[in-house]
Design a protein around this nucleic acid. Structure first.
Length: 493
RNA sequence: GCCGUGGUAGCUCAGUUGGUUAGAGCGCCAGAUUGUGGCUCUGGAGGUCAGUGGUUCAAUUCCACUUCACGGUACCA
């Protein structure tokens, strides 16, 4: 029997599932270091770390219950052998609500908790948008004070800076869900008219992308996009539309001015008045914490998640210009967001537990940072010890052991190739140094060290290959006994 | 989900008005250089031309469907 190409299709294709990615050392280190820095910031604000499982029972996650009709809408879910549905968590907040409800009596309240980990969403992936990604959250459960919201905003700004975004390259845009609710009441939309309410919220949310004109269309009859697809509008009358548009125009140059403008547009409604008062308290706290307009801004058009937030909402916008590897401008969504959600724990306990928090999208932040040219530097690889003589392997392994003993990452080349290939290998590993011990060195009790970075620099001024090979730039001969000290010395350069 | 555009080597892309053996650059492997990563030169490997079906003497090329990718839009706890 001959093995032909016809048998190939039976082999599995080596590939990652759609919307999932492999991450190599560089990306991994960047992400993990961001996570650790951000968690430290959270801890410094008094938030304790908590880790909950990847899976939760579907009913505990709420909203999207897997059922006959739509078993996988939005979440990855599976049925356990006892017939119960479990879902991979889609954020860190729902598991927190479950944890708090479950441990209510044993927790100090208000309870501050921070957490980091992967979350999963079963939806259409896009550039910079995956079906598995990391979040880094801090939430405070049990305080209805606006100071708790202000704290979340200020801490979010701190966290973003700790993650490597320079001040001035981001801004936290803050609004309050109550403002829009007050406005809706004012233009005569019934609180029970969910359809119209959501239509208005969605329309306002698109202000930054579609502009005032697009929003106006969406508030009215509807809008046709570039691809010819038609989006049905909220169906408001012209008078109501102009009131909503007036609301979206209340973003002013300072928080105080925005507050004044908001008071005028929605301050005369019950909810609107509450919203303005909360924002005023937040403004005062932010000022006390030293957050000026350059870091936290009031933007009434911020909407965020639809059925979830009940009061103040905010999102971190990246101001840096970002380009992809083709040099084209890329639009990153918000890199972090948060707000007040007073009803989440209620699902479990039947009583309101006021809560507010902040969530940082780690993967997206790291992607945005590198697109903005702020990628962390690539790390140096291990010292590579060339394997030139089969009989000398034990000695090579010993050298690597000694270097590791001194805290230096080191490895012996374990392939079968010749010296040239081994040098290329070391180059590709981003090794700072190679250790060369052939028979010449060994007989004299020496080893040769080569500084690869220095060698690459020197190579630029050598154009004949003969000279390049003869000169052996950036190499030194040292006694075998002095290997570790010499390597340490060379690393210091 | 809906609308649109696309899928040719590991990557970026030519090309085939339907016709022997489908190309380039970069990358990879090797040699020039018996022990030196860069540069230069030479050679090599690597493709079911996304998949399935149809039209045809003949399909990578035309048609249909599927799938995946990209863009827009909707949804996004």
């Amino acid at each position: 029997m001959s093995e032909t190409k016809n048998s190939a299709p039976s082999r599995p294709l080596a590939r990652t599932p759609r919307g999932f990615i492999d991450r190599r050392a560089d990306a991994l280190m960047a992400e993990r270091s961001v996570v650790e820095k951000v968690l430290r910031v959270y801890e410094s604000w008094g938030y304790e770390r908590l880790e909950t499982p990847s899976f939760e029972y579907a009913d505990a996650l709420g909203k999207f219950l897997p059922d006959q009709d739509r078993p996988n809408e939005g979440v990855f879910a599976l049925e356990d052998d006892d017939g119960q549905w479990m879902s991979l968590r889609y954020d860190l907040t729902a598991p927190l609500a479950r944890f708090v409800a479950q441990n209510w009596d044993g927790l100090p309240k208000p309870f501050r908790r921070c957490a980091a980990g992967p979350v999963w969403r079963n939806e259409k992936p896009g550039p910079g948008r995956f079906r598995e990604f990391w979040q880094c959250d801090a939430d405070c459960v049990g305080s209805a004070r606006p100071e708790a919201d202000a704290e979340a905003i200020a801490m979010g700004a701190d966290a973003v800076e700790a993650a490597g975004v320079p001040r001035g390259l981001y801004v936290v845009n803050v609004s309050n869900r109550k403002l829009l609710d007050g406005l809706l009441a004012k233009i005569g939309i019934d609180a029970g008219d969910v359809r119209t309410r959501l239509g208005v919220l969605r329309a306002v949310d698109k202000l930054d992308r579609l502009g005032a004109q697009g929003v106006e269309l969406l508030l009215g009859a509807g809008r046709k996009d570039e691809s010819g697809d038609f989006t049905k509008g909220a169906g408001l009358n012209p008078a109501a539309i102009s009131q909503v548009m007036a609301f979206t125009a209340t973003r002013k140059a300072t928080r105080k001015e925005t507050l004044a403008a908001l008071a005028e547009v929605v301050g005369d409604t019950e909810l609107g008045g509450e919203g303005v008062a909360e924002l005023a308290a937040i403004d005062a706290t932010l000022a006390a914490l030293g957050l000026g307009e350059d870091r936290a801004f009031f933007d009434p058009a911020i909407v965020r998640g639809l059925e979830y937030y009940t009061g103040p909402v905010f999102e971190v916008e990246l101001l840096a210009e970002t380009v992809d590897d083709k040099g084209q401008k890329v639009r990153f969504g918000s890199i972090g967001s948060g707000g007040r959600y007073d009803d989440l724990v209620m699902r479990f306990r039947g009583e309101r537990a006021p809560a507010t928090g902040f969530s940082l999208g780690v993967s997206r932040l790291v992607a945005a940072l590198s697109a903005a040219g702020h990628a962390p530097q690539a790390r140096s690889g291990p010292v590579v010890i060339l394997a030139l003589d089969a009989d000398a392997m034990a000695g090579y392994m010993q050298m690597a052991g000694q270097l590791r003993g001194a805290g230096i990452a080191a490895e012996v080349y374990l392939g079968q190739s010749g010296m040239k290939a081994q040098m290329k290998y070391a180059d590709r590993r981003n090794a700072p140094i190679v250790v060369i011990e052939g028979s010449t060195e060994r007989e004299a009790g020496n080893v040769t060290l080569k500084d690869l970075n220095l060698g690459a620099e020197l190579a630029q001024s050598i154009d004949s290959n003969e000279a390049w090979r003869k000169e052996r730039p950036a190499q030194i001969l040292v006694p075998r006994a002095g290997l570790v000290a010499a390597v340490q010395d060379m690393l210091k350069r």
